[in-house]
Design a protein around this nucleic acid. Structure first.
Lengths: 227, 227
DNA sequence: CAGCCGCGTTAAGGGATCGTCAGGGTTACT
DNA sequence: AGTAACCCTGACGATCCCTTAACGCGGCTG
């Protein structure tokens, strides 16, 4: 049984989610504030957290940071359409994904399933870490990429970007985190680099670079690797 | 019974790990600092070490180096998301694997099992110790190389480079790792040596040394042995 | 509706990295 | 003591790759 912790201060939304999720066989725990959420998380050990950013007591980002000190439970953020600032800081704080309010329940459910799947199938040890898509395969241990049976040559930086995205496959990786992991903390603002290198990777790997299916942009937020 | 040494200064994390690991039948020893960790390691002789990089007293890399002076016990590093620099230096110092904080307990357990398995599995059986390419064959057990039926003489250093590459055939070996394994950790920066010795090996082994097919350079990353 | 912002794309310059050769110094063996 | 093997070092040209700039596009905002 999968346990979901729903954190929102609007009873209306909590009620809707409780009904929808229970109907799909989830075990639902709710909290209406940040402090209550932290308590519930440590007591009930949910398999996934759905967190509204606009809470009355604690800032959503704070809740994420506190959770992240001891658990890597997937966190899906609910945010109003306008809070793109907040979305970014939530992702940087360690959120896994986000859904914009007002949200379609189907989208939330899809992201929920994806998040749970990701967390229960842990990344393999390096020695057998081969990720496959319809278009290409990535071998993390050998640092090799194949497409249509032939090897594709990547430069060090191209490889760095692809590796970070691959290790976080399915999950939205913020621009800041990508820049920090590949170029270093002092390059956090050089979002231009990402555009250049993502374009290069798509040209080398995607069947139709102008309509990427695996290296996806989330405007203003970051990038996502979809298998 | 497998003994795990857990080194972390956050009681929350130590507690979580102690519970999870004990439940899986591991014998758990803990230390909250680097000095205590070194003492515990020499007294309790753990089968695997889980080490947080952010310790109050000693730098994580220092702890790894000190451990590596007398033991080859597998070390799994815990690192915060942003410390990608630290991750690299930890691996170079001799760590076996790393897990990003916050970590899923399942992933840590998988890597733990993999590390223990690796450390207890002996070297390659003799029958697997002969690697063949179209141009030459390498006998790891006999430390001999043949080309066109006749033996090729290699100097000790040439052999060292070829052996490391051969044991990791197909995989990319970073310059740092090659230098560490062949010359020692204090030569990590002497990338020039590699260029000289790879050129020599190619001259002796490759049919067309200027267009190597088996001893391949990946610019900026390292070298790779392709069969 | 016009301007702005973020994104994608391409190409070029210059700096970093690599391959190659040869000479000097050290070690090991006769 | 002499010689041969081997390792290191330096120099140079060739190659590779990171960075930067310029331009086009679509969407959002004032």
């Amino acid at each position: 049984m999968t346990t979901v912790l729903v954190v929102d201060d609007e009873p209306q939304i909590v009620r809707t989610l409780r009904i929808s999720l229970t109907a799909r066989g989830y075990d639902v725990v709710t909290a209406s504030g940040g402090a209550a959420a932290l308590r519930a998380a440590s007591e009930r050990k949910p398999d996934v957290v759905v967190l509204d950013l606009g809470l009355p007591d604690l800032h959503g980002t704070t809740v994420i940071e506190r959770l992240r000190r001891w658990t890597s439970v997937p966190i899906i953020v609910l945010s109003a359409r306008s809070d793109s600032e907040d979305k970014v800081s939530a992702l940087d704080a360690g959120a896994d994904d986000y859904v914009t309010k007002p949200f379609g329940i189907d989208e939330l459910l899809a992201r929920l399933r994806a998040a749970v799947r990701r967390s229960t199938v842990p990344a393999l040890a390096d020695e057998d870490a081969v990720i496959e898509t319809e278009a290409f395969t990535v071998d993390l241990a050998a640092k090799k990429v194949h497409r249509n049976g032939t090897e594709v040559h990547l430069t060090p930086t191209e490889w760095g970007v692809l590796e970070v995205l691959t290790r976080n496959r399915g999950k939205l990786v913020s621009q800041k985190q990508l820049l920090r992991d590949v170029w270093g903390p002092e390059y956090e603002k050089e979002t231009h680099y990402l555009r250049v290198y993502l374009a290069q990777l798509r040209r080398k790997l995607e069947p139709r670079p102008s309509q990427p299916r695996h290296l996806v942009t989330e405007a203003g937020l970051g990038y996502r690797f979809e298998t």
